[in-house]
Write a protein that binds this DNA or RNA. Structure first.
Lengths: 95, 95
DNA sequence: ATAGTATTTAGATAAACATCTAAATACTTT
DNA sequence: AAAGTATTTAGATGTTTATCTAAATACTAT
């Protein structure tokens, strides 16, 4: 879970997720959306993959990446948990 | 927004948010829940404060911290965005 | 005003991380 | 099998970040 949050902390990786939400893409296609080198993007893809935020599938000489929304559920649940009921915020704080 | 994600990437900071979801606390009370030194916790509190995930209020010699759920909304919205409709995932991917 | 408590600031250090270049691996096509 | 394309691995480098100790600031109570 900590790894997921750490993976989400990088703007490039979040952009990759934004790309993959529209359609599955090969590593090269993803790379083309950034100025960084392919090895750098490959590293980011690997980071995302380790957390299972994305998954990959080899198709010939290409590697196709796709988003895996199941992990997002867990993160969302944490957010819901935090947003639930801080007693001090029911009614505004006393002066 | 990037700063918010970076702030959430640290487990200690997420624990602080978990604490504050139950009730507002002074810096010292928060500190008592961790083995780290007070300066370290103070630094984490500052990081959270800069992103407005928490806010503080001075009360005598104490500083009382509280959660600020408004920023969470923004983060949640990003998640909803990513989870929405990857066309490749409507029906399962072709073999 | 002095001593005590609460918190933060400053400065240092070590670990983690994003990025690069060069090289390796894997597949495809001629 | 040789050449070309796609992707990853390895190793190096600079930056960021979590943490510490020591010191400063701010308030309270004697």
């Amino acid at each position: 879970m900590n790894e997921v949050f750490k993976a989400l902390a990088d703007p490039t990786r979040r952009q990759i997720l934004d790309l993959l939400k529209n359609r599955d893409m090969t590593a090269g296609e993803i790379s083309d959306h950034f100025q960084m080198t392919k090895p750098t993007i490959s590293h980011h893809l690997n980071t995302l993959k380790k957390t299972e935020l994305i998954q990959d599938e080899k198709r010939g000489q290409y590697v196709i990446y796709s988003i895996n929304t199941t992990v997002f559920q867990d993160v969302m649940n944490w957010f819901f948990g935090v947003m639930q009921s801080n007693p001090n915020h029911k009614g505004e704080n006393e002066k």
